[in-house]
């Protein structure tokens, strides 16, 4: 009789709005809290990382050129889509060992976080920028701009709230991101990707590589087209030998508590641009 045997989801990478397998053909297994196999998840390679950066770079300028209002609407739309898929995320979080009460709270907090950052899209600029009273006949102002392409190490815990807390403050201002998501947390990350593709987030704005932090960190910190890295989600077991390669192109390095919600976090992924023009006749 048809329908008795469940169809399991294949967890793949998320690059440029599509779900490719790793070019390496490798996977890693994710088990549930009872030790039973949930899925074989694609394990991203260096080449996958480069593809993701390429996608993020192409998407960055168009995303930053959207109006702040539009970026805010899209983030709000992501929250709407998450809301409609609450049961799915609840099951997913429970399967990796989060209890019902904590998981329910985590999902609510994740939705709220997106709504909070959505509202910031057309406001942070007024708080962080300025018109500057210079001593001379010049109009002088400072505006924040997105840093560019941001590499993010997503925390393994809390899987869902940690992921949302890292990407929202980066993308709200027009950055694009390449996120590394490890082990059990990769299941929620890839499922969030399914939410993103149905939320009008343009392809390439968020790219997700499931795989090992120690494998992928060197490529992230050494890549010359990555402008900033958020290492808040680094696991204690991850090898940080290559971290100093951030200096290869003077990357901005962000490290904060994994589920922080703050204006400063938006500011971490911004550059301040100051423009001078003479005043005269």
């Amino acid at each position: 009789m048809a329908g008795k045997i469940p169809i399991a989801k294949t967890y793949k990478l998320f690059i440029d709005g599509a779900f490719p397998r790793s070019e390496s053909g490798r996977t890693f297994s994710v088990n549930n809290s009872e030790g039973e196999l949930i899925a074989n998840v694609s394990q991203a390679s260096r080449k996958d990382f480069r593809e993701a950066v390429r996608a993020a770079r192409s998407a960055q300028s168009p995303w930053a050129s959207r109006t702040a209002y539009n970026r805010g609407q899209i983030l709000y739309r992501v929250a709407e889509m998450l809301e409609s898929r609450k049961p799915e995320f609840l099951e997913l979080l429970k399967s990796i060992g989060v209890n019902n009460r904590v998981a329910t709270r985590e999902i609510e907090d994740s939705i709220q976080r997106l709504v909070w950052y959505a509202g910031w899209s057309d406001k942070y600029s007024q708080l962080l920028g300025s018109v500057n009273p210079v001593s001379g006949p010049y109009f002088n102002f400072t505006v924040p701009e997105p840093t560019g392409v941001v590499g993010i190490i997503a925390p393994t815990e809390p899987a869902m709230l940690g992921f949302i807390s890292r990407i929202a403050p980066a993308i709200v201002s027009g950055n694009t991101v390449v996120v590394v998501s490890e082990a059990q947390s990769s299941l929620t990350s890839v499922t969030i990707a399914e939410v993103l593709v149905t939320s009008d987030v343009p392809a390439g704005v968020v790219n997700i590589l499931t795989g090992d932090q120690t494998d992928l960190l060197p490529w992230m910190v050494g890549h010359l087209d990555v402008n900033a890295v958020d290492i808040s989600g680094i696991s204690p077991k991850t090898d940080l030998t290559h971290l100093e390669e951030v200096a290869s192109n003077v990357k901005r390095v962000v490290s904060r508590s994994v589920d922080e919600e703050s204006l400063e976090l938006i500011s971490d992924f911004l550059e301040m641009k100051t423009v001078w023009h003479p005043i005269g006749r």
Binding site: N140, N227, V250, K273, T274, H277
Partner: peptide, 26 residues
């Protein structure tokens, strides 16, 4: 770039933030 001078150049003021993008620093 962090500082843009339009119809002027090399102007500085303590009230005007100065600093770089990319490999010009942070």
């Amino acid at each position: 770039a962090g500082v843009i001078w339009a119809n002027t150049f090399n102007k500085f003021d303590p009230a005007s933030p100065f600093g770089g993008y990319k490999e010009s620093g942070f």
